[in-house]
Simulated assay, not measured.
Amino acid sequence: MTSAASKPAPSGRQMTLQPGPGQEPRAALLRAANINPGTGLATDYLNHFNEAIMLLEMIPDMPECAEDFLAWHPLSYREHFMASNFKARQLAIEAYESADAGVRADFDNITSTMTSILTAVGAAMREVRQDKTRATLALQATGWVKPLVAAAGGIINGGADADVDYIMTH
């Protein structure tokens, strides 16, 4: 049975959601920056993938948006924050780098999968010229990536909503 201070991570690891003694000032700093103090991760990174999803969702109704999607390029967690206007970008990068290795591996696995899907769909869209084919690719990609964004959000927020093994095998 888990305590109120921890929840099982998708991989069965325990993630501390409450700071230990003496860690409250850091936890407060992380919370103020919209970084989960229990995981060291920030949901702001998911905006990078949500942008791609938004562009993909527009393609069936506005085929010219395919060009906007094709201009999207993957960014690592560090690259995203370095390029962003996020106020606490250095803190976000430091918290990510010092996050539990297992939690970070679960998170990186999902974000790597999203990046692979989006990159492959972009490559396929570059090969085809028919709007209908591009729309089909866009719809398929959003169906694959949206659940992964939700799973990544679950990991960021402590793993309560993410079952990584299930999502990655279905």
Rank of each mutant, 00 (worst) to 15 (best):
M1T: 15
T2R: 13
A4I: 02
A5Y: 11
A5S: 06
K7V: 09
K7R: 12
A9L: 12
P10S: 10
P10I: 09
G12W: 11
R13C: 09
R13N: 13
Q14K: 14
M15S: 06
M15C: 07
M15W: 12
M15F: 13
T16N: 09
L17N: 14
P19V: 01
P19R: 00
G20L: 03
G22L: 02
Q23G: 05
Q23F: 15
E24K: 12
P25F: 05
P25A: 06
R26M: 09
L29R: 05
N34K: 10
N34G: 02
I35E: 01
N36Y: 04
P37E: 04
G38H: 02
G38Y: 03
G40R: 12
G40F: 02
L41C: 08
L41H: 05
L41P: 12
T43R: 15
T43E: 14
H48W: 08
F49S: 00
E51Y: 01
A52E: 03
I53G: 05
L55M: 07
L56V: 11
L56S: 02
E57Q: 02
E57D: 00
M58L: 04
I59V: 11
I59W: 00
I59N: 03
I59T: 04
D61L: 07
M62W: 10
P63S: 09
E64L: 05
C65G: 07
A66F: 08
E67V: 11
E67Q: 09
D68H: 14
L70K: 15
L70C: 15
L75P: 04
L75N: 15
S76P: 15
R78V: 07
R78G: 00
E79K: 11
E79T: 10
F81Q: 09
F81Y: 10
F81N: 14
M82K: 12
N85S: 07
K87A: 01
A88K: 04
R89M: 02
R89Q: 10
R89T: 06
L91H: 02
I93L: 04
E94P: 04
Y96C: 07
Y96D: 05
E97L: 07
G102C: 01
A105C: 00
D106V: 04
F107D: 01
F107R: 08
N109E: 10
N109W: 05
I110Y: 06
T111R: 03
T113L: 09
M114T: 13
M114Y: 07
T115Y: 14
S116A: 09
S116K: 10
S116W: 14
S116Y: 08
L118S: 12
A120G: 11
V121F: 07
A123E: 13
A124R: 03
A124N: 05
M125H: 05
M125V: 09
E127M: 00
D131F: 00
T136G: 03
L137Y: 07
A138H: 05
A138S: 13
L139K: 11
L139G: 09
L139R: 12
Q140F: 02
A141L: 02
A141Y: 03
A141N: 06
T142C: 03
G143I: 02
G143D: 06
W144I: 09
V145I: 05
V145E: 08
P147S: 12
A150P: 02
G153W: 00
G154Q: 01
I155L: 08
I156P: 00
N157G: 13
N157T: 15
G158C: 14
G158D: 14
D163S: 15
I167K: 02
I167E: 03
I167Q: 04
M168G: 12
M168V: 14
